[in-house]
Amino acid sequence: MVGHRASLAGAMYRACQAKHPNITFHFGHTLTAITSFSPPTCTITPRNDSSAPITLTPALILAADGIKSVARTTMLAALDHTAGIQDTRQAAYRIMLTRAQCAHDAELLSYFDADAVTRWIGESRHIIAYPVSGKQIYNLSTVQPDTHFAAATNATYTTKGSKETMMGVFADFAPVVRRMLDLVPEGEVCEWKLRVHEPLPTWVHGQMALVGDACHPTLPHLAQGAAQAIEDGAVLGVVLSLCPDASPESIEKTLRVYESVRKERAETLVDIAAASGRELHLGEGKAKKERDEAFARLKAGEGKVPDRWADADVQKKIYGFDCMKVAEEEFERLFGEAKVARERMEVG
């Protein structure tokens, strides 16, 4: 069974409430400033009212503030470094259909009941879809050329879409796809611009660490965007539990261990996801012909899958890696190396 990310977030919140009642949640607030990385000092501001901003002085900051990360921008400025936004020229529709919406169509319901992920591929476009939430919701994620954000500023990442336009983008796809898309209510079409940024020189500065899209935004061609953020959180949970004390130096070294375990792996998967998208979205030509022939051989039970997301070696790289085990086993060594590196930096 595949759960929806909202269900996961809700379960984590309820667990925190039950097991850690001293945690304070500031919902409806946005990180607007980091004024110091050591000691960490940040400001969060209410989004929807005129309440005063709140200044926090925590022991550490874990900044999971997304691709438009204030923490990343502030850190890079402090380090006199840049990592520009990269325009992928791709956009996505995200669609969730309920079982009730599809109750009239037996073929659509068969997709809810299948223990399978389905991908439809066309020139410069694809759709990946699968059931979630106990097979009560069918989740569809599309990728198509970006035609609606071309004149937009870098601050714009979403736009209200037109159902007619969405139907036109996928007009040559299978009839079952068009029936699914036609169930989306008018006025509820939302399109996301897909952007990434250049690899960062570091994810850690002082007692602050970047998490998730703030440091490794990933195109959706490998189904690893949220998954890699979860790995970040899992590794942080392990290393912080092993941190020997709450001193600023120990916290920073511990965050360096997190970076050592996660950075290279996450950036490798970011690159594989981008390469997968290029291969899936081929237009006419020799490369497309070879890819389609490979799919045909695979359907006949021969050859290697040309879709990296379904490739056995790639899946082993993704799912055969126990990030928590590695973090636990390597903590002492990496913590020691972080200490040596810090001492050399201070002496040099």
Rank of each mutant, 00 (worst) to 15 (best):
Y258C: 10
E328V: 14
E249R: 09
E337I: 10
L334R: 12
V340M: 11
R291W: 02
H281W: 06
E330Y: 02
R297V: 10
R278Y: 03
K289H: 02
F321L: 07
K316C: 05
R256S: 13
K316E: 07
V314A: 04
A275R: 15
I251H: 01
T254V: 07
K253S: 09
A287R: 11
W309L: 13
A246V: 08
L334S: 12
A310M: 06
F331I: 07
R297N: 15
R342I: 01
G277Y: 02
F331T: 06
E264H: 08
E293R: 04
E329C: 14
K316T: 07
V257W: 00
L282Q: 09
A246I: 02
A275M: 12
K325R: 15
K253C: 09
S247R: 06
P248C: 05
G283A: 13
E293T: 05
E302D: 01
L280C: 08
I272F: 03
G301N: 03
E259F: 09
K299G: 11
G285H: 07
V326E: 12
G285V: 07
R256Q: 14
G277L: 07
L282Y: 08
D322H: 05
V314T: 06
K339W: 02
A327V: 09
V270E: 01
F321P: 01
R256P: 02
L334F: 07
V314G: 01
R262F: 01
C323V: 15
E279D: 11
E259N: 14
L298F: 15
K299F: 09
D322A: 14
T268P: 00
R278A: 12
G277D: 04
